[in-house]
Design a protein around this nucleic acid. Sequence first.
DNA 1: CCTCACATGTAATGAGTTACATGATTGG
DNA 2: CCAATCATGTAACTCATTACATGTGAGG
Lengths: 181, 181
Amino acid sequence: MNVRTLCLGILAFEEASGYEIKKAVEDGMFSHFIEASYGSIYPALTQMLADGLVSVREQVQEGKPLKKAYSITEAGRKALKNSLHELPQQDKFKSEFLFQALFRDQVDPKHLEAVFNEQMDYLCGELATIEECRQSVEPGSGHAFVNGYGHAVVSAAIQYMEESRSSLGLPQKPISSDAAE
Amino acid sequence: MNVRTLCLGILAFEEASGYEIKKAVEDGMFSHFIEASYGSIYPALTQMLADGLVSVREQVQEGKPLKKAYSITEAGRKALKNSLHELPQQDKFKSEFLFQALFRDQVDPKHLEAVFNEQMDYLCGELATIEECRQSVEPGSGHAFVNGYGHAVVSAAIQYMEESRSSLGLPQKPISSDAAE
DNA sequence: CCTCACATGTAATGAGTTACATGATTGG
DNA sequence: CCAATCATGTAACTCATTACATGTGAGG
């Protein structure tokens, strides 16, 4: 999948600016597909505008910079549908974190612990976000499936990592960003 | 992570040719990190040879083409260690399959079913491979962690997908490539 | 006879990231 | 006053993929 299709997908749900798309991809409802930087989002929108897949509405805001709100057009919806049918890759299970874990005896223990904890924090953060989202998505929708899948997979990862702490020679309770404080 | 580091990692375990590296990344013990094509593997090996990170041994085989068996050097091990400490990205949970699932009402049901089944087949295949591997990896090793993590995550995905069949409007039992026959 | 598995490589192409470039307003 | 958030965009660069190019031997 490319950034164009991702943007088109987001715009199929809601009008958005390049900036808002970036936020949605980083954190929001669309953070579980692919990553995208400003350097790919803005050119994608410009190109799609030229191709007639999206339209712009320039919003003048008080006390804030000019915002270009993009909307999907009928041609855009068609193009999205088309892209959806052409996506060939089923996604493979890949993880760079696991690569680091594989060579755990090659890295120094402090670093291993840091990597492990960062990964753990990320996963816990994701789980929290997913659980928050659950309230706002309607059951049976595409979003609900995405959330459910995410929840299942991320929980499993967290659970396995928690169980593996000792076998990796890591201290049992690191900082616990949740319960404490 | 780049292909160079991936190759270096594989060569840290065993001497291998470009061809064998490709196979290991496609299917074998090293299939859970990143993808790599011949077009990236061969140049990576050539470059690392020039940099002194690997050495070659040309094997003349009966009835088979010339094979270049690459081994990691001391400098290579150092470089790997270094790369391992510099890998910044914790891996995010991303899935293009979920993008397709999100727009399930935009694609035709036949296509959705096909995508779903392909994904399911892939996951089941992975699970089978992981279970096979379990016998040959020693407990407590990096490989064991990779296998365990993979098993946990892939099983969770399979289970959730199985449970979601009906809510996606898909037939309960498609072809069942396991039990039947 | 033809295709598959083995085996190595290059060049064009494509897609994205990083860093650069700019600028207003708000809150500490 | 400085940093962060909001907001848009470009250009150089990196990295990998795809397609091309070549060749053998085994098995159906």
